[in-house]
Design a binder for these strands. Sequence first.
DNA 1: CCCTTGCATGTTAGG
DNA 2: CTAACATGCAAGGGA
Length: 924
Amino acid sequence: MATRRCMNAACGVTEPGGEWRMGWGLRSGGFAMLCVKCGLAYEQLAFCDIFHQTESGWRECSSCGKLLHCGCIASKSSFDLLDTGGVQCIGCMRNPEAPFMPSEVVQNFLSQHHQGVFTLSTRSSKENDTDTAVVSRACEMSTTTTDSKIDVGAFVKGKGMSNVDLVQSESEIRSFGHIKWEQQSPEVGIASFSNRYPGPAVSSQISQLDEKDFVIDKSISESLAQACLSMSLGNTNQGSNMESFSSAERPLLALPMACSVAEGKDERKSLSFFQQLPRARFLAKPPKISNRAFSDASRSALPYMRVARPPAEGRNQLLPRYWPRITDQELQQISGDSNSTIVPLFEKVLSASDAGRIGRLVLPKACAEAYFPPISQPEGVPLTIQDTKGKEWHFQFRFWPNNNSRMYVLEGVTPCIQSLQLQAGDTVTFSRIEPAGKLVMGYRKATNTVPLQDSQISAIANGTFGNETLFSGVNENISTVSGYSGFLRSLKGAMDPYLSSQLEHMNASDEDSWHKGGMPNEGLQLQPLQKRSRNIGTKSRRLLMDTEDALELRLTWEEAQELLRPPPSAKPSIFTIEDHEVEEYEEPPVFGKKTIFTARSSGEQDQWAQCDDCLKWRRLPVDVLLLLKWTCADNTWDPKRSSCSAPEELSHKEMQNLLRQYEDLRRQRMNASFKQTSSELAASGLDALAAAAVLGDAGNQATTPYATTTKHPRHRPGCTCIVCIQPPSGKGPKHDPACTCNVCMTVKRRFKTLMMRKKKRQSEREEAEAHKKLAWGNKEEVEGSSSSPKGAQQLDPHQENEFGPESSKSIIEQLETSKGHIDLNCHPGSNEESQTAAPPRLSMMGLLQDAYRPLETYLKQNGLTSLASEQVNQGSPSSFTAPQAPGESEGKALDEGHFASEEQEDGGDDGDDDGADMVTSDAS
DNA sequence: CCCTTGCATGTTAGG
DNA sequence: CTAACATGCAAGGGA
């Protein structure tokens, strides 16, 4: 039988040990079941949230006028929510003579604040209570508990009495539950509520309450209905209707963060029931919440959670991104030992310009207007803000007129930013010390958030990191995306600095377990994830990451890509795009075990994997893909070493050495690769290729570690493509002249493109020449008689050479010598060498020069009639992008488009530039 | 030449 | 579509 348990897991009170009350759950932002012991504290702050979001005059105790604010816990004062509306301090609450506020306040309150999410989950009793805790940060209870004192006063009033403990019969509670809770279907989104929960039905159900001596006026019922409408569909399992519950099927009240979903809306608007219908649709589809979503561990961290609290005293609606996430601990820290209380106001993640040298911190308009002194002149007012150490900073709070609006800035923040060593991505929080009214500024560093560790990525990919919510979000995000790239993009999107700051909360070392409950949250909501991911490449350019960070991210990213494995159980559906088969997996990939690859001087390659149990390294074939968990027992390739007791093939020292080399090379290669990416001037994949080749050569002694492949930085371990199987020496397999592999086909296509471009350029040039002659008439002729040949040569200094017989001979010879084979490891810069040393090489430069020859000439010379039968190579993009004749842009655009499609086809490499996948020929 | 200041503009999220 | 926001940029002042 399910037992009621206080929503505060740390409290540990379970039925029948405690007294129960229902009230506004602080953490959940919704109604929750709390033991009296905890409920008091929780509700106090919750009331403040309510209070601060309204302007309904709930600033003070309705009886004694005592001020109420968010710091009421710290100030040791206690307040409670009156059944009839308003709040009352504990002292007055105990006084039966104390006056009460009219129920109108309740009406306002409910209509203003309770459109949040009510999640009712049901489950069968066979499920374990602990394991199936449905929603974090919310209480859970069995509504069918009998004879328990449940104070529903805070929610549904008892007749005129505040906080009357109502002894409810099972049927009463059940009917009460019936008002608000319906069985959920996991597949149904919130939007469907408008259909599923028609108003009248709710009203009629509420009327049952009336019959049970509950007095609920129409407005409350509307609010309730509203709450029902916003009911979040969490993970529920069985049953279809509350009424069908047997006593063994306990409805579970789960109250996720109501306000965090309903937030950004104007809380003061009181919408009618039907007006709420479309509004419910605005709620983001909640992430799927697992029964295991809220682990016991995270439950225990509840009191320390970083909760995005609705802003205190929000006079305007405030976007949740600005909601202060100050923990109680931090509040305590700020307030110190003093009796002062801290009112968290808002927070902001620093942008690059905020943290930059310009010294201006852009303030969210709503925050500035709500919490900072009103200013009418752009010059603004000086503002003194104290930091957590008590140091006072003087800023100028001002605004700029902007698009008929205002842009509020805090000027002169540089010293403060520097003093606190804040960077873009860090968060500053603004609070107010009461009763002094001083502004205080806190901060949170975000430095540990950007680079996700492999294990984290892996965990995310497996949907096991922190919760399953993130994964489900990502998963949904890519459900229609083919292959891994979409998945990776999604993950990459999740590494957007903005999200990184959100992911901060997922860091296991962080005390913050807020997200772990799968609460609807900006950082985890699917939509923001999608939208944010769009930022990659545009805004992220401006953001946060310094070179090192970016490099680190890149490393992680590349590593992540290398570790991807097809989902073990899923079978791909194969479809064809542009003659290339693409595997589409319904399920996201899993991350595999990280291995290292080595090459021997003979060119033979090995893969090494470490046993998870004994940590010994085992040699494996290169083409083996391992799943994340791998032990010696799985070593089917080497029976002698298929047990942990078997010694390592290499000595420990050798292995360590290998690992060290591997790590160094990996770093070097990534550095080179990163530099290549960041330096636009090179924009050449050849650099990376060269770097990789160099690295490969450098490590080509005996058994040499190299990262992934020495041939190409982006080929994955185990890749058996021609690029990867050819050793750095250039020996080994070559492309056959008739080879139709992606590489060869791409080479051919590019050559064709090159030829076409050249041809076009030349015709345009001729056209321009003709035009010029026409325009300049005799003058041109006179000048041209002496300078024209020279000028033509200047236009294209290689022309003579390119079209000269020598060149023609050269290419033929090269081709003949090469016998059509392509050496994928030719060093791109070894052109001269190749021409002087035997055997001659078909170099990049040579090919480039060839490329500038008219296509027909080339074909004729080589006795080729069709590009399909060619075996040629093409040159460096850095080279052939250099000459750009007038009018070329159109052709270039065409070519680029063409290249883009080529890149897609090119062995799956997401070429970041034209030449990234270039290969060179070797006429060995 | 560098820094500050004020405004303009592009991008994005929210309604 | 628009308000909000991040950042670019030009003008002006001072070293």
